[in-house]
Amino acid sequence: MVQEKQVTLSVNGRSRTGRFPAHRTLLEALRELGHTEVKCGCEKGDCGACAVLVDGKAVDSCLTLVWTAEGRAITTVVGLGNAQSPHPLQKAFAESGAAQCGYCIPGMVIAAKSLLDRNPDPGEEDVRIALSGNLCRCTGYTKIFEAVSTAAAALREEGGVR
């Protein structure tokens, strides 16, 4: 019999509980809990579509076992903002046309958030490196780079981290 245990996660500031076997990844668990904004692209850590913030750092949730995420603060793209009150990154991604099919975008925005939290004024090379674990097949990254720069400037203007 596969061993399961009850795991309580903190997702976007809310407590979420489920029973999961030891081999269940954080990606699978989050999706089982209804967090379909976390996307599955490869389950091997190659594409970054499943990236979430764990204690502020972007990680591939497909490479994280859910048992190890207990008690840690998990943030998905939904936790950053919504259509009525978007995070500057979300606003910039939408307005600059950085989302085409959009499937990579939840992970891409999370990777960008992780970058801007560390470095509020990144150069182009910093942005490239920060997003290098996130594949996009639609955009050629040009508008994604623009969106991250636009958001960084907006955040600096606001004078604070969001």
């Binding site: 379909t36 904004e37 996307k39 599955c40 998905t76 793209v77 939904v78 950053l80 903002g81 919504n82 259509a83 978007p86 990154l89 979300q90 606003k91 991604f93 939408a94 307005e95 046309g97 950085a98 989302a99 959009g102 499937y103 975008i105 939840p106 925005v109």
Partner: peptide, 20 residues
């Protein structure tokens, strides 16, 4: 260069794809 109608849902994680 208007913001596409599908963009807000995609950047906020609200868009449901077939697998969702």
């Amino acid at each position: 260069p208007l913001t596409r109608t599908d963009a807000p849902g995609k950047v906020t994680g609200r868009t449901l794809y077939a697998g969702d």
